[in-house]
């Protein structure tokens, strides 16, 4: 691919790669912007930029990630994802076949998530100025419930996670130069809306939803504890982590509580609602490992964990990315 300033090269990219994949009525009109129908409900909007190395990884690619990441942020607002916009920054020299794979993944993830890509943009930068592809997506969704956020979380509420932790981060590391290992671990990247909508349909009183992306479970819970000014107590023995993720975390010296996920979330509900909420999540077939891992209580803004051996420790935010270590 050559450096194109908006001329014929970019035009051909759009014709050959993007349009065939993103077959939406609105994008197909090729106007400067998209017209949306009038919507009945309150809207939620979110935007996210995606940079990941390597671009392809077991269980996904930057393309599927760019859809899931954004539709999941909408789901965490209790909003059904409807539309996506997509911006691409491509590095000169990127193989067209690779780009096609990324775009195909993106289209498939959008289809599965029930969102339409309504408008898109592409820029090409000089070689060496980017890691192949960067993608920005903005999502628009309609809210099916009132606001859910840390401010609604109350002492006595239960913390539920939707499944086992750490697969995404470990899948990425498994193909990273210098660390690579062979494994059956695939990224957990997936759309969370079906699970969230099941909770809403069952009439569960949802106080807060948070996806467990960068920084993992620990960051999500610390953010909630600090925003609401409560203490969150969790029990290490109840936190679901698969054997291969544990194994990889052991030899790389990582703590799975800080490893990123792309298809896991926590939901905070009144304590009495917790068993039913877990049942609903499991019944979707998408959150078979869902379980209660802790509860909120009056206290300082922090996360405290009862360890497997019965001790207690603080689970703090991490400063910077976890790096594999030998010490």
């Amino acid at each position: 691919m050559a450096h194109g300033g908006g001329g014929r090269m970019t035009e051909r990219l759009i014709e050959d790669v993007f349009l065939p994949a993103f077959v939406g009525a609105e994008l197909g009109r090729r106007h400067d912007g998209a017209y949306l129908p009038e919507l009945q409900r309150r809207l939620a909007v979110t935007t996210d930029c995606f940079v990941v190395k390597p671009l392809l990884f077991p269980g996904g690619s930057i393309g599927s990630l760019a859809v899931h990441g954004t539709v999941n942020d909408l789901a965490m607002c209790g909003a059904r994802p409807l539309y996506l916009t997509a911006g691409f920054v491509l590095e000169e020299g990127l193989e067209i076949a690779l780009l096609r794979r990324v775009v195909t993944d993106m289209a498939a993830a959008a289809r599965e998530s029930g969102v339409e890509i309504i408008t898109a943009d592409t820029k090409v930068v000089e070689r060496g100025k980017g890691d192949g592809v960067y993608i920005n997506t903005t999502g628009i969704g309609e809210c099916l419930i009132g606001e859910a956020g840390p401010w609604r979380a109350e002492p006595g509420d239960a913390v539920i996670v939707s499944g086992d932790l750490g697969r995404h981060g470990i899948a990425i590391l498994s193909v990273r130069e210098g660390i690579e290992f062979s494994t059956r671990i695939e990224s957990d990247a997936m759309a969370l809306w079906p699970a969230v909508s099941a909770l809403i349909a069952a009439g569960i009183e949802i106080h807060c939803l948070r996806d467990l992306t960068r920084g993992g479970l620990s960051s999500a819970l610390n953010e909630i504890a600090r925003a609401r000014g409560v203490e969150i107590n969790i029990d290490e023995a109840t936190i679901p982590i698969s054997e291969p993720v544990r194994g990889a975390c052991e030899f790389l010296g990582l703590d799975p509580l800080y490893v990123a996920n792309e298809g896991r979330f926590c939901v905070i509900v009144p304590g009495g609602e917790a068993p039913r909420a877990v049942g609903v999540l499991k019944s979707t077939g998408l959150a078979l490992d869902a379980r209660v891992i802790g509860a909120l209580c009056e206290g300082r803004s922090r996360v405290v964990m009862k360890t497997r051996i019965g001790g207690r420790r603080i689970v703090d935010m991490l400063s910077g990315e976890q790096l594999p270590r030998i010490c």
């Binding site: 062979s182 494994t183 052991e250 010296g253």
Partner: peptide, 29 residues
């Protein structure tokens, strides 16, 4: 940090270059 794992494969003849695959809970390194 030293972690126990099960040896599942051994290759190489020369002792100084002996290598193998080790299983850590299902992950092979």
């Amino acid at each position: 940090l030293a972690v126990p794992g099960r040896v599942v494969e051994i290759e190489g003849a020369e002792p100084a270059f002996l290598r193998g695959k080790v299983d850590f809970g299902g992950v092979l390194k």
